[in-house]
């Protein structure tokens, strides 16, 4: 099911794309200027959520629900990344 014949949903999808893109740039700003390492890791968390949002909006636009698998995998990988990063930092402190 594509967006043809649904004007309100089309507008909503474009608003959603626009705000997610602005959010990505805001996250990029914090990623470049973040004063410490945990700041940057937190932003990676945010960017993963934003990518999930972009995938969902793309599903709404094209009607290809297969891409939900990608959202599942990203939601899992971010958690693993967070835990690995926290362990690594902890070991670095203890040294």
């Amino acid at each position: 099911m594509t967006l043809e014949g649904y004007p309100i949903l089309t507008v909503a999808v474009y608003i959603s794309f626009a705000s997610l893109t602005i959010s990505l740039f805001a996250g990029l700003y914090r990623l470049l200027t973040g004063p410490s390492l945990p700041d940057r890791m937190v932003v990676m968390d945010l960017i993963a959520s934003l990518v999930i949002g972009l995938i969902l909006t793309y599903i709404m636009q094209t009607g290809q629900t297969v891409y939900l698998n990608v959202a599942v995998v990203i939601a899992l990988l971010v958690f693993m990344g967070n835990i690995a990063f926290a362990k690594y930092l902890k070991r670095r402190i203890e040294k």
Binding site: L9, A12, V13, S16, S19, I22, S23, G27, G53, T57
Partner: peptide, 18 residues
């Protein structure tokens, strides 16, 4: 449409907060 727009606005609020 309302759910979609509100969801993306919440993410925008998170990014502004960051």
């Amino acid at each position: 449409s309302i759910l979609l727009v509100f969801g993306s606005l919440f993410m925008l609020v998170a990014a502004i907060g960051v």
